[in-house]
Nucleic acid binder design. Structure first.
Lengths: 158, 158
DNA sequence: GTTACATATTTGCCTTGACAAATATAATCC
DNA sequence: GGATTATATTTGTCAAGGCAAATATGTAAC
């Protein structure tokens, strides 16, 4: 009767249109891949997790391992091992907290600060700018605020 | 000179306001956590990855391991092992492809289809509805399309 | 002050996923 | 047809992260 292709199907075939969840997964994994590639292209041997830790250590200043772990959403045990590596690379220092000897005081070394400011921050900026280059400022703000609201809804399921 | 607190600081303290990348990471991990919790609350012993595979197997119908792996963005080796588990749980069947004996024909069993339709799809729907409950239809569409554009920009850095 | 409890870090164990090598089968070139 | 190349799956190896136990230190109750 109708020679047109698939006339009674809705225009979106659910088997190939990603769900919102899948879309978010894909965006995140592209961001991770792109930042790691950008870092590597600058000669930096830094995983995405390590990049996050350096970033937060720079932003927070001296902090405990637990604070850093919360800031980058990483398990405490995993943090210990990442700190081992970053310390071996000479990017940060572990000293005991002055008043609470259970805790550490973690701070970037000069090399760590330099790496962040001269190279790593530029890499991430480049990637995130590229990611958002097709959105104008208003749309970027919308995207951000919508994601904030989604996050809030998920965390307060009431 | 100026007694007001931090008058020359911008209103947002970057050390606590998540970046777009971190926001996306947090949203994704909350979605994963929530869906796994929802599945568990229904008595289903299914990881998020396994949930994705069942979903895609339902959507695609009989498919090869490679097609499924692409659909859920999973490595081929990891797919083999997940298929082992799902087969052991009785949710899917592996048979050889009729014309290409390298490839598999993977399809859900009756139990697999039933699990998806009666339980798992409802779980994910509930979570994704909750996630987006504070966005109206227009905003949901905006969020989706903005993410699509971000993904496209990342994949075509040109 | 001692006991009980809470917190910070480290370590061990386990699962997962990426990557590469191995194997089997197809497709192509000559 | 036989050699070469490409593709599908499986398996081995490794690094990463989650969780729980161990250890050290701090805090509160009594």
């Amino acid at each position: 009767m109708n020679p047109l292709p698939t006339p009674d199907q809705p225009p979106t075939d659910p088997s190939h249109v990603p769900s919102l969840g899948m879309l978010i997964t894909m965006v995140r994994s592209e961001i991770v891949r792109a930042i790691e590639a950008e870092l590597a292209s600058q000669g930096l041997d830094l995983s995405f997790t390590q990049y996050l830790i350096v970033k937060k250590a720079h932003l927070l200043g001296p902090a405990s391992a637990t604070e850093l772990a919360r800031a980058v959403e990483l398990d405490g045990g995993a943090m210990t091992r990442q700190l081992d590596q970053l310390e071996r690379k000479g990017l940060l220092r572990r000293t005991r907290h002055e008043h609470d000897r259970r805790a550490l005081r973690i701070e970037l070394t000069e090399a760590g600060h330099a790496l962040w400011q001269n190279t790593a921050s530029v890499c991430s900026q480049r990637v995130m700018d590229a990611a958002q280059r097709s959105l104008d400022k208003t749309e970027q703000a919308q995207l951000y605020h919508h994601l904030e609201r989604v996050l809030h809804a998920l965390r307060h399921k009431s």
